[in-house]
Structure formats: C-alpha cells, structure tokens
Amino acid sequence: MDSYLLADADRVVARARAGDPDALEQLYRAFEAPVYNLARRICRTTEDAEDVLQETFFEVCRSIGRYREEGSLWGWVRTIAASKALMRLRRNKYRETEELHDEVTGRQREDTALRMDLEAALERLSETSRAVVWLHDVEGYTHEEIAAMMGKTPSFSKSQLARAHVRLRRWLGEEVVV
C-alpha cells in the first residue's frame, strides 16, 4: 500500500524526519485522499472530516520522528486518522444520530418496505455503529483494535457490528422472511 500511495516512501520519510517541508507535503499529498475518505465515512459532516484531515496531518508532521517503521506507513497514518475521527465523535456525542429517534417514533417499520442504497443506509447508521462497520469491514481492524481506539471492550465492538448489519440488511431490503 505504501509504495502504491507514495513512491520511494523510505526516502520521503527520512527527509520528513529531518524537517524538510517538501517531504511533509509529499506525505500529505500521498495520504490525503484515504485519510479524508476514512474521516468522512466515520464523521457526520464534511466539516468534521476536513478538521480530522487537518488534525491528522498536523500530528503526522509532529510525530514522524517517532514513526518506528515496524508496520506500514499507511497503517501508522491510518491509525492516527481513525483515533482523531473517533475523538471527534466523542466530542460531538450530543449529535448521536437519528437512529435512536427512529426507534422511538416507530419509523423503522416503514423501512422494511423501503429499499435504500448502501451509501444512504451507511449514512443512516448511528455514528458509533458506522465507525465500527467501517473500521472492521473496510479498513480491516480487529475488534480488539477497535475496542482499544474507542476505549470500549471487544464485545461492544462485536455487538455494534452485528446490530449495524441487522439494520443494513433491513434497510437494503435483504431481509428474507423464513
């Protein structure tokens, strides 16, 4: 992944560690798109995702000297981005989502017949569920890793994932009546 996103990654990292602003910008340009995509999939608004993008790269520039090259560069950047995005969710917790509201009003019953596309269904999940789905199913984090980033237990991550898939299945019209 590193060489796909950034040719000659080792040399760029060495220059970035030495404080070369051009190398830092190369890191930004290489990872800007996947970081923003991850942030936007987790955060509710484009503004939040852009803030996460900025905070992530500020942290990358500050901490590049501490990057140990034990894993991939993208893995390291991605973990910073995921942590920043989850931090943003915790800060915005008051906005936690329409999903619970739907349950109270009983609107979810209508969804049984309403087929949504995957983008819309993902967007409709609660912020926590969406974050778990994205980090697990798309980014490939384990429940243990997600739990550590969220400050929760692996069981919490597993149950959020299962709950999210029940909802996605219903909203996508994939529920099979037995």
Binding site: A33, Y36, N37, T46, F58, L122, D137, V138, L168
Partner: peptide, 24 residues
C-alpha cells in the same frame, strides 16, 4: 455487503488543507 462497502467510491475533500497544516 462487506465487499460492497469496500467498493464504495472514495470521498474527496473539496478543500486543500495543506496550507493550514503547514502554517501550524
């Protein structure tokens, strides 16, 4: 479903945030 999630198109930022990062 997981495969379709992975295949969703990448979302891109409308704004270039590098000038702010660099300034900080």
């Amino acid at each position: 479903r997981a495969a379709r999630l992975k295949a969703l198109p990448a979302l891109r930022s409308a704004r270039d945030r590098w000038p702010e990062v660099r300034a900080r």
